[in-house]
Design a protein around this nucleic acid. Structure first.
Lengths: 331, 331
DNA sequence: CTGTTAGCGCGTTCAT
DNA sequence: ATGAACGCGCTAACAG
């Protein structure tokens, strides 16, 4: 059964194609009688406007490109859900690009997006340099970046206040009497990692604790990195009494390492994560962490993009929150 | 800076638009000199073929629609990643539809997909009736369904052997001496739920244990359902000694309920989940469960779709595996 | 209120 | 080996 097009409907209804278009898109200035006639014909032929023709003339795809690094990290699904729900309220669909932390894939996706399959792009991936993003924006592609602060007249951004997050985590540990506080950080190129690092150092400085480079490392943000670095740190002569990780996944890795070494959490080691993903309240013991508003990040990013497509640029900073559970205790 | 189109390149290279198209798509029958000239012009203008014009003439979008119910359930991200990786190897991009268990959203997405933004669709969502899927397939949309067995000449499917999964879980509990085995099942309309139920009953029958309807329920497949049903079951006069859940998320809910009631796992209650998501090995205690090959499901689904677009239909059944951890013990 | 015409940007004939 | 002309399906602009 071949698909009916607008001509078929026009013929059956005895009107012109443009009248069909007007009737179906509820334009004003058309008689109710004609509208009904068209609607009936359309229904009879099971007519649905062809997307490919439609976007060519309307110049809108009703798609939003969303670039993320790792859908397997529960941080992102929550963000995606927030984005998806808000998008679908405005009849937009999400075109998802999962880059698996690969620069090449990020670039490919962005190139593809810039060729026209989407009306705008949300970038929640870290490896793409700002200049590349700016270039595309100046070519006319509406872009919103998540968790990177990029001030540019054609780009909107929304980010958790990362520096504050790093500060809150470190200060919490300091207040519990910890002095040797390690930071298993994320990728060195990531702005989020840099800003959290700033917050970490700020808290140390405030407490007059000297920063020890041996206690800080940059890593791929997966559980295995947390495991590996924790083993390394705990086997040194002067091990830390607490570890702050770039994200909860890495904290899970740390917890596993501690258990494998036969140590107790939080008695032998205090741990603070970042993100507050769903499972962090289910671990043993439940994880102390810095909460990001993940759904909000996705939701607001879509709203910003919709505004940006109308020409309104904005930047938003979201507050992180310290969630105290049971992986931290007094030294 | 306005985007260059094929005409601009043609003008700069001093050739016709069709020559540009041939040169850039590496067609035979074109002089090397001309090709170089065109490539150079294209580079100078930063030309990228306009996607919207391209799909109209090539009749291929290089997009695949992927419908899932709940991206927040870690089962799906792993599936999505498998699909995404395989798709991008063939230069396809995933258009993601998250339906949040809503029939309306499923239908909307499917309608949208059928209008032309994708070359084919993968459905990993349960509420859409088979007839609807068949209709779209007969209109010419290539469709692959995941975890539902749908025999039709124009539809391919890939599914874990759900009945076997249900059977393995139940048999494991029976072998540990359990007789009162509850099944907190998923949605009643879901084929996966029905088939697991079949396996559950089969194992009971084999062991000559009478099926007790009070021990089985149908639910929305989220952690809260597991919690709620577990509380209900454990507060009856003759509570079960073990619970099998539709998925791991629900098992997490059950574990929380057991702890809240002050009981011990697995001494007071044995638990078996389904899926083996990443976090199931991190819970306290680690969860015994039935493993589905999630990435494989996504990967194979894309392969099947690509084949289906060439006209080859197939159906694949994947073997589930019992993963024994520490939430089950001898009665 | 409705029909006619043009054009979106490509790829693909069919000529040359 | 290359150019000219056409068409994909729709909507917007113009005409009546």
């Amino acid at each position: 059964m071949k698909r009916a097009n607008i001509q078929d409907v026009a013929k059956l209804a005895g009107v012109s194609p443009s009248t069909v278009s007007r009737a179906l898109n509820s334009f004003p200035g058309i008689s109710e009688r004609t509208r009904q006639k068209v609607i009936e014909a359309a229904k009879k032929l099971n007519y649905k406007p062809n997307y490919r023709g439609q976007i060519l003339t309307t110049r809108s795809t009703k798609n939003i490109g969303l670039l993320i690094t790792d859908i397997t990290n529960p941080f992102f699904p929550e963000l995606v859900r927030g984005a998806e729900e808000t998008a679908s309220e405005s009849s937009y669909t999400i075109l998802l690009g999962n880059t698996s932390e690969s620069v090449e894939k990020e670039t490919n996706y962005l190139d593809f997006f810039s060729r026209g399959p989407v009306d705008g792009v949300i970038i929640s991936a870290s490896r793409i340099p700002n200049e590349h993003i700016i270039n595309l924006a100046e070519e006319g592609l509406p872009i919103v970046v998540i968790n990177r602060i990029l001030e540019h007249p054609k780009i909107s951004y929304i980010s958790t206040d990362m520096e504050k997050g790093g500060y809150l985590a470190t200060k919490h540990l300091i207040e519990l009497g910890h002095i040797r506080i390690a930071f298993i950080n994320g990728p060195s190129h990531s702005e989020a990692a840099k800003r959290r690092f700033l917050g970490y150092k700020k808290a140390l400085t405030e407490a007059k604790i000297e920063y020890d480079p041996d206690l800080a490392s940059f890593n791929i943000p997966v559980a295995e990195s947390g495991y590996r670095e924790a083993i390394k740190l705990l086997n040194t002569k002067n091990p830390p009494t607490s570890i702050f990780t770039y994200n909860d996944l890495m904290a899970f890795g740390v917890m596993k390492a501690v258990k494998d070494l036969g140590l107790k959490i939080p008695d032998d080691l205090s741990i603070v994560g970042f993100d507050d993903i769903f499972f962090s309240s289910f671990t043993d013991p439940p994880l102390t962490t810095i909460r990001q508003l993940k759904e909000e990040l996705g939701k607001k990013a879509v709203e910003l993009l919709l505004e940006l497509m109308k020409g309104e640029k904005r930047g938003i900073l979201l507050e992180p929150e310290l969630i105290i559970r049971n992986t931290t205790s007094r030294r």
